[in-house]
Simulated scan of single mutants.
Amino acid sequence: MESKPFAVNLSDAPAYWSLGELLTLVATAEQTGGAFSLMHERLPRGAEPPPHVHRREDEAFFLLDGELTVRVGDQAFTASSGSFVFCPRDVPHLLTVESDEVRMLTLCTPGGVEKLFVELGEPAPSRTLPPDDGAEPDVERIVTLAAHYGAEVLEDWP
């Protein structure tokens, strides 16, 4: 997969409502020759992903606004605006939004897992958080799609 130079403004990048968050694809694996993907995420409290582990990529978070606790393996990090947290592949991790909302950049190397969030979501009709419709997520679908993209949802991680 070949990459070519590109530039994008956040307001022009594709945005999705996915599992209760607003996810904007700043750079995809397709655009970067597979090297990485970069996502801008807005997560409200309670819309965090379940505990999981990536088998194909490292994942890193740069917090722009809000407060987040990131548990990585047996360590826990409190992240606030300006914080960076690295989660190596094959190490379980869990995010907990501590403020009403967080805004962060998520870097995945190599790229590709961003397709999971696109497939689980829908194009965002506005650059706002999705409405809370009270519906429970389809856990079986999440587990199946996560496995397809090299991630494992951990139902019993302590």
Rank of each mutant, 00 (worst) to 15 (best):
A79L: 08
A79W: 04
S80D: 07
S80H: 05
S80E: 10
S80F: 01
S81I: 02
S81Y: 02
G82F: 03
G82V: 04
S83Q: 05
S83K: 09
S83F: 09
F84Q: 04
V85D: 09
V85E: 08
V85F: 09
C87I: 05
C87K: 05
C87L: 08
P88F: 10
P88S: 12
P88G: 10
R89H: 14
D90W: 10
V91N: 09
P92D: 14
P92G: 11
P92M: 12
H93D: 12
H93W: 15
L95P: 06
T96D: 09
V97C: 07
E98N: 11
E98T: 08
E98P: 01
E98V: 08
E98M: 11
S99H: 01
S99F: 00
E101C: 10
E101A: 06
E101H: 03
E101V: 11
R103W: 01
R103M: 03
M104K: 01
M104Q: 02
M104P: 00
M104T: 00
M104D: 00
M104A: 07
L105A: 03
L105G: 02
T106H: 01
L107G: 07
L107H: 07
C108Y: 09
C108K: 14
C108D: 10
T109N: 01
P110E: 15
P110K: 11
P110F: 13
P110H: 12
P110R: 10
G111I: 06
G111H: 00
G112E: 09
G112C: 08
V113I: 15
V113Q: 12
V113G: 06
E114S: 04
E114L: 06
